[in-house]
Simulated assay, not measured.
Amino acid sequence: MTGQPQPQPQPQAQAATPRTPYRYTDPTPPQEATGTAAELYAQMAVDFGIPEPAPFVVLSSAPELFAPAWALMRESLLAGPGSRTGKKVAALGVSLANRCPFCVDAHTLLLHATGERDLADTVTGGGVPETVQHARVLAWAQASRTPGAPELAQVPFAAADAAGYIGTVLAFHFINRIASALLHDELMPEGVRPQDVLRSPAGEALAQAMRRTPEPGASLRFLPPTPQSDPNQPSNAPSWAAGTPVAPAYEALRAAASMGAGLLSEEDQALVRGTVDGWDGAHPPLHWPELPGADRPGARLAVLAALAPYRITEEDVAAWLTPPHTDHCLVHLVAYGAFLAVERVERALAAAWTGVPAAGRTRP
């Protein structure tokens, strides 16, 4: 010992933990998935061109929701009837109406992937597409958030394409809410353009997938049995999707999402349903008397998920996500609220569809 000060060990620099896309939950990484989940991811990689789409990965914490949500999107947007470009315009219109930046970025990228760069930039810039058909689809999809909107009175697609278009709109009314509630806003880093992404190997895989039409119905094998698949049971399948794979996919998601009601008391369920049933499609004001207070955190989360998921805060989640609640429960509660809004939209679209004579359902 020399009596001189000894060098002190320096703390090692800690590597920054990369931020994941997920808020509030910690889903199992897709590369660790096994069984049905692994098969679903494999189908997503081939049919969607994206092996780990975050809005579906976040649902994997609740496997009952994971497969039906994917099936509804796949069977309507990717494999369903109707123009693929037209349905992407519809999905982009819904995402704009719902103020979901993540999904707006995603559908802008999808349109770029199919060579529709000008169309994508026009719509995201607030313009009107040059093609009359695309303009009508965009207006219809954006108005779908508002029950009774005049744009819903005459549908902008052929009757044979209803399952594709209506299914796509409903799929993204659900996915928008999941993304806004449970994901961070950005899909692409700031300054990165869609064309930059598409030059990468992942972008090339996406573009190739967007040029293919998957086999209709191939996702239905992942779904649990529903009344739609049992001839001895009554079915609530929507008439606009009758006879197509979209019908059992929609019914399966409705059944799975309704399970979240069990996380609330009957009184809170009634409050949430009443609030959503009275919704006029508007984005709620900052002063929102109908929003349940912090003393009813479950009802508050469900109402926010339905009508303004982008306003869910860490405090809202922390107030409810206490033992015995888990990530699985949180995803189910958000899905419950989200699908109540989907059902509100579906009733309005179905009423308009039923009320329009068949001749009025065709393209001009």
Rank of each mutant, 00 (worst) to 15 (best):
residue 3 G to Q: 07
residue 6 Q to A: 15
residue 6 Q to Y: 12
residue 10 Q to L: 07
residue 11 P to E: 06
residue 14 Q to M: 02
residue 16 A to L: 07
residue 19 R to H: 09
residue 21 P to C: 13
residue 23 R to K: 15
residue 24 Y to P: 11
residue 25 T to Y: 00
residue 25 T to I: 08
residue 34 T to Y: 03
residue 37 A to P: 07
residue 39 E to H: 02
residue 42 A to T: 04
residue 46 V to C: 05
residue 47 D to I: 15
residue 52 E to M: 09
residue 55 P to K: 11
residue 56 F to D: 00
residue 59 L to W: 07
residue 60 S to Y: 06
residue 61 S to A: 11
residue 62 A to D: 08
residue 68 P to S: 13
residue 79 A to I: 03
residue 81 P to C: 03
residue 82 G to P: 00
residue 83 S to Y: 11
residue 85 T to V: 14
residue 85 T to S: 11
residue 89 V to K: 12
residue 91 A to G: 09
residue 98 N to S: 11
residue 100 C to K: 05
residue 102 F to A: 03
residue 103 C to S: 09
residue 105 D to V: 04
residue 106 A to Y: 08
residue 108 T to M: 14
residue 122 T to Q: 05
residue 123 V to G: 08
residue 125 G to Q: 10
residue 126 G to L: 07
residue 132 V to N: 10
residue 135 A to Q: 14
residue 138 L to C: 13
residue 139 A to T: 01
residue 142 Q to M: 11
residue 147 P to M: 14
residue 150 P to G: 15
residue 153 A to H: 10
residue 153 A to S: 14
residue 158 A to I: 04
residue 158 A to Y: 09
residue 159 A to Y: 12
residue 162 A to E: 03
residue 162 A to H: 02
residue 165 Y to N: 01
residue 167 G to Q: 08
residue 168 T to N: 09
residue 172 F to E: 02
residue 174 F to W: 04
residue 181 A to P: 03
residue 182 L to C: 11
residue 189 P to C: 06
residue 190 E to N: 04
residue 195 Q to A: 01
residue 200 S to N: 05
residue 208 Q to L: 14
residue 209 A to W: 05
residue 210 M to S: 10
residue 211 R to Q: 15
residue 221 R to L: 09
residue 222 F to G: 07
residue 223 L to H: 00
residue 223 L to D: 00
residue 224 P to C: 14
residue 231 P to V: 12
residue 233 Q to C: 15
residue 238 P to I: 11
residue 242 A to S: 00
residue 243 G to N: 04
residue 246 V to R: 02
residue 250 Y to K: 13
residue 259 M to H: 11
residue 263 L to Q: 12
residue 264 L to G: 08
residue 277 D to K: 06
residue 277 D to V: 02
residue 277 D to Y: 10
residue 279 W to L: 04
residue 281 G to D: 07
residue 282 A to V: 12
residue 289 P to S: 08
residue 290 E to S: 01
residue 290 E to V: 01
residue 290 E to C: 06
residue 290 E to I: 00
residue 297 P to R: 03
residue 297 P to A: 10
residue 306 A to M: 03
residue 308 A to V: 02
residue 311 R to P: 03
residue 314 E to S: 10
residue 315 E to T: 08
residue 316 D to F: 07
residue 318 A to P: 02
residue 319 A to R: 05
residue 321 L to Y: 03
residue 323 P to D: 05
residue 325 H to P: 02
residue 326 T to L: 10
residue 335 A to E: 05
residue 337 G to S: 05
residue 338 A to P: 04
residue 341 A to Y: 08
residue 344 R to D: 04
residue 349 L to C: 01
residue 359 A to S: 11
